[in-house]
Write a protein that binds this DNA or RNA. Structure first.
Length: 468
RNA sequence: GGCGACAUAGCCAAGUGGUAAGGCAGAGGACUGCAAAUCCUUUAUCCCCCGGUUCGAAUCCGGGUGUCGCCUCCA
């Protein structure tokens, strides 16, 4: 089955056909590294991490590129406030990015280019636009002439005139058209700069993504993705400048995530409700955050608060409990020959894998895919009520969770964990007490362990423990 | 003024023409020394409202209401 996805370019769900068979280039707009990234950013990075994982699962060879914007007005301002250099600032928050991203199970991209490492490529691209008459230089500032590119507005779905009509910004009077945007910004006194044909300055925000994405993935990308608020103007501008320069289509499929709100409000500095991943991680298991973010379709708006996270935790726990049980069975239970009920279970495993794939094929419907995982969980639990299991079947189930769980980046560790000897001893003591029908003592130990975060379950195969 | 998204049970959330997935929470039961986990049963005669198309609509069309967003840096 082919993957279908929603393309912002035409607002339709299309079959995904990469430019080169079985190879995919994806570029995702990364963070401006002037602060810790927030939960809204996280949704974007996470969703496209899953897109990447699923395409790999389908057998595509994916080249995944996510940039760091490490020079920009906000960077300069923040560095001044913190009294450090822009590059020190970048270093700090790039490191922080990797920490938080890793916690959320977001894999590293194949390339994490930084704008400052590609100044030459950026200048070359701007020069090309200037040469073609699509950009103009005014006293060291270079602007893209939006009227020179016919398709301007095609991503946004609006005509250039309509965009202008609503614009209530202070327009730089030197620009030819209000919508023209900066490709190169002249450096102010004492600001960091690079030499260019137009004098000392730095790149504008939009041009870096065009330069870097084409550098790594060629002049036409399979997928370009980012947050919803990047559609305009950032992505619109990228299209204009890239296609203006190359004369080729820039991107085949544009993908954008939905918004994430905090308590139904947009995150904003003025409301002071920005939640960083770093903060959230202090309170909640990041995998719960991941599970929560994947429990709705990626294009739907999603509401975030800690109560909802708590609900999500319950669901993820159900999945984890089963996996723990399966691992325990493999360790302890006897193997029995394959019989009819085992074969039925194998058929169900196949069925739910298929359902999972169908959901993911359908514009990465992770909510539906997770439902398939839950249905498999129920079937497995029913199967486990049988006394005699075939361990091959158990292994097959585990493999399935391993592979499908890996697509979503949930269920990261399918390994049996070692216990502290001290806790092991307590469990033994409790078993003794139970044997002697000293239930008061047994329950006391169980409560003690619970406080240490260890949950005990008495099963026909003996006592089983798991972390709360 | 232009453009757009969303509205499904107490909560979260799939489903885009064939008669309401899944999860969380709740209730009852089974299992258990008691629990936990798990299983079974139960929780929307109906999908914001009003019209229309259709044999048939949560799903399509028209109108309305509500919430949110973009058009300005923003994931």
């Amino acid at each position: 089955m082919a993957v279908k996805l929603f393309n912002t370019l035409n607002r339709r769900i299309e079959e995904f056909v990469p430019l080169k068979e079985k190879q995919v280039g994806i570029y995702v707009c990364g963070p401006t590294v002037y602060d810790y990234f927030h939960i809204g950013n996280a949704r974007v990075f996470l969703i496209f991490d899953v897109v990447r994982r699923y395409l790999e699962y389908k057998g595509y060879q994916v080249t995944y590129v996510q940039n760091f914007t490490d020079v920009e007005d906000k960077m300069i301002k923040r560095a001044e406030e913190m009294d450090i250099t822009v590059s020190e600032l970048a270093e700090k928050f790039i490191n922080a990015y990797f920490e938080d991203a890793q916690a959320l199970g977001i894999r590293k991209a194949n390339y994490h280019p930084r704008a400052t490492e590609h100044i030459k490529d950026i200048i070359k691209l701007i020069q090309k636009l200037v040469d073609k008459g699509l950009a103009y230089n005014i006293e060291g500032d270079v602007y893209f002439d939006t009227t020179s590119y016919q398709g301007y507005g095609k991503l946004t779905g609006q005509a250039l005139e309509d965009l202008e009509a609503g614009a209530r910004i202070e327009v730089d009077q030197r620009k030819k058209n209000p919508m023209d945007f900066a490709l190169w910004k002249k450096a102010k006194e004492d600001e960091l700069y690079w030499e260019s044909p137009w004098g000392k300055g730095r790149p504008g925000w939009h041009i870096e993504c065009s330069a870097m994405s084409m550098q790594y993935l060629g002049e036409t990308l399979d997928i370009h993705a980012g947050g919803p608020d990047l559609i305009f103007p950032h992505h619109e501008n990228e299209v204009a400048q890239s296609e203006g320069a190359t004369g080729k289509p820039f991107v085949k499929y544009w993908m954008h995530a939905g918004y994430l709100n905090i308590d139904k409000q947009k995150m904003s500095k003025s409301l002071g409700n920005i939640l960083t991943v770093k903060e959230i991680r202090k309170k909640v298991d990041p995998l719960v955050v991941r599970f929560f973010l994947l429990s709705a379709h990626y294009r739907s708006p999603i509401n975030f608060n800690f109560e909802l996270l708590e609900q999500a935790r319950g669901g993820l726990e159900r999945l984890n409990t089963l996996i723990h049980t399966l691992l325990d069975i493999i360790e302890k239970a006897d193997n029995y020959p394959l019989d009819e009920k085992d074969r039925e279970m194998l058929a169900k495993v196949k069925e739910y894998r298929l359902k999972f794939e169908e959901s993911m094929d359908d514009d990465f419907n992770t909510a539906d895919a997770i439902a398939a995982l839950f249905e498999l969980t129920k079937e497995t639990n029913i199967y486990l009520k049988e006394e005699k299991q075939n361990l091959e079947v158990i292994n097959k189930i585990l493999d399935t969770y391993r592979e499908l769980g890996d697509v979503l980046g949930l269920i990261p560790e399918l390994k049996k964990e070692e216990l502290d000897p001290e806790i092991e001893t307590l469990i033994q003591k409790r078993q003794e007490a139970r044997k002697n029908k000293d239930y008061a003592a047994a329950d006391a130990i169980r409560d003690e362990l619970l406080e240490k975060g260890i949950v005990l379950e008495d099963t026909p195969q003996g006592v089983r423990w798991r972390r709360k």
